[in-house]
Design a protein around this nucleic acid. Structure first.
Lengths: 253, 253
DNA sequence: TGTTCATGGCTGGTATACAATATGCCAGCA
DNA sequence: TGCTGGCATATTGTATACCAGCCATGAACA
């Protein structure tokens, strides 16, 4: 009897990897060989393009940055089709904007859009903080502390850029610890945009100090499993950044 | 070097409609014509497919529902390319799942995924409620009341399905009133998924009664500009639904 | 010399042809 | 009879050809 009738099919559709059926019947655990090995050109092009865009420091200049389908296809050594599919996805994620018969352009977020993104991030992360107080393990929360072990004292001033990255990772970790995939996925795009803006954001020493203090308070609230307090702290921390951007980030626009 | 048209181009790229450039130079406000007069085949196919999927009542049966690229292309009278692009977007939005060399299948959300979506929705809408208390006009908030004018008394029992739609609209309106486009866009997908599940959700009379009472309290909090209270009410209302699903929605999975 | 307008090049949008692979059927063998 | 292996078929992934609109150049004319 063919055990691979309909039951595994449902699973294979839901499972992301789903190439186990390729190997011989070898009655080992089928989970032994989820050999992914299926990064299509589309995904490769998507990843390559996204990396390129993120690494671009687009806020340095104000000139429009255009992406040429045909040229990119040549550079990648593939045809236009997968490049186009990658572009379409990047467009739906807000990284590029395609103008018919004109070209594809890298998107620069306006100051107001940045504020909106930070506000949305505040919404997601504050909910995530609630969930963390309810479901995360003590070890997971403890890992949050370690992220700041290297940033005590005055080392911060010398490594503001590094801190900026650790800062983003801290918040991203909280969202991941929530275990809510919808939250995680929604936040991922926001954080990617944040990383792009980060370079252009002027970080002052005292803001960093306050940021670290906020983070410590957040960690304490999470450890104490203080759901409401953690939520408020996380939200206000993010909204504080939004206000800061609103006041001082006139270099956007 | 692109100094000549940098300003209008920036606008035309950012605007979603982006057909203003087609008009003569006519120095009118470019924001006057967001009339999306350029629905490409891709967008048409996307809209048609999305409508079809939403109207599908996919939770009635457990059989896998497959979408045939070529058949759809024939039915729409277009080629596979725009259909594929529409499919790709629907996949990134979580409506379908494409299995290489197998086909694309309509996605059924598991119970756990539904709970995660509702939780994310709670995060977005509770933040939106905060913003509404700070920025919305009294008229806008008053409109919320009108939505329930027809649902007083016992009319609800007879029109449970209608109520379900009004219910979703109520929450969607709150998010729209926030004026935060990021929140709005994120929530849009969630609500679309909700509308699909709604049909399968058994709505009991007493839950509806409580729901209406919750809504009224929310409206009152918004009118009173009670930021924190509105947030809590909205969040708990949504999380209450999540709990309800967790307990009673075993027909999912 | 300044303005207008036609035309050609370049772009993304669409259609179609080709390639790769997963699946199911059927013949052949133990 | 039950199982294995290869072939036919179906389906998506990719490449390429064609089309229509936008833009800029430059010639022609006032």
């Amino acid at each position: 009897m063919n055990t691979r009738d309909s039951t595994p099919r449902r699973d294979s559709i839901r499972a992301r990897g789903a190439t186990a059926a390729r190997l011989p019947v070898a009655a080992v655990q089928p989970s032994l060989a989820p050999i992914d090995a299926a990064p299509s050109f589309k995904h490769k092009a998507y990843a390559a393009l996204k990396n390129a865009i993120v690494a671009m420091d687009i806020y340095r200049s104000r000139d429009d940055i255009r992406l040429d389908e045909r040229k990119l296809a040549q550079d990648f050594g593939i045809s236009r089709t997968p490049v186009r599919e990658a572009m379409a996805q990047l467009e739906s994620e807000g990284f590029v904007r395609s103008v018919p018969r004109r070209g594809v352009y890298v998107v620069r977020k306006t100051k107001n859009e940045v504020i909106e993104m930070i506000t949305a991030w505040a919404a997601l992360e504050s909910m995530a903080a609630r969930l963390v107080t309810q479901t995360a393990t003590p070890e997971q929360i403890a890992d949050l502390r370690k992220m700041f072990a290297t940033f005590e004292g005055d080392q911060v001033r010398a490594h503001l850029d590094e801190y900026s990255e650790v800062n983003i990772e801290f918040h991203q970790t909280i969202i991941k610890l929530s275990g809510n995939r919808v939250l995680i996925e929604m936040a991922e795009n926001l954080f990617t945009h944040m990383r792009m803006i980060r370079r252009k954001t002027i970080v002052e020493k005292d803001r960093v100090d306050r940021s670290i203090r906020d983070h410590m308070k957040i960690i304490e609230a999470l450890e104490a499993r203080a759901t409401d307090r953690a939520e408020v702290l996380v939200r206000d921390h993010a909204l504080g950044l939004a206000d800061h951007v609103k006041q001082y980030a006139d270099y956007l626009d």
